[in-house]
Amino acid sequence: MPDQRVGAYAEALLAVASVQEQSSRITDELFRIGEALRNNEGLLTALGNNRLPIANRQGVVEDLLGDKASEVTTALVSMVVATGIGGHLPDILDAMAELAAQQRNRVLAKVRSAIELTEDQKTRLADAIKSSTGTDVEIRVIVDESILGGLVTEIGDDVIDGSVRFRQAQLRETFA
């Protein structure tokens, strides 16, 4: 899919989300949905399969999100799936998150954590990153229990891995 088309959908979703009362929550939910779909190839293929009836694809979205996301979030994802580009949802939602950060003159920072972070932790982490790199970042948290503990921060191509899983790997290399 061309980047231009991905960008257009991202702008549209962000425009709709930004006029909602809980715009921050919606954009955060959309970002998390995109990351979840990126790691679930089977579900992504089903949502992008245009040979399936639109109603069926939208039904899958509603069954998955249901009460786990806001109605607006569910409606936006359902709309994208209905247009036949459900297979590109991760890229679109990722572009939307980056676009949202850019609109606030920030850089998107994807943070993987085994637990949910508090607002205070997010703020302190953003401040720490700014003090470290000189860049204002917008924290987007992805709960990933596979890292066991700690955090993994991705800012563009840079990765700061402070997870327990990474420490274990280092320990294994040391033993080996």
């Binding site: 932790q121 982490l125 720490a128 955090l151 402070g162």
Partner: peptide, 10 residues
């Protein structure tokens, strides 16, 4: 662990 990570980055 999270706090330690944040302190380490800072």
């Amino acid at each position: 662990l999270v706090d330690a990570y944040i302190d380490e980055v800072a």
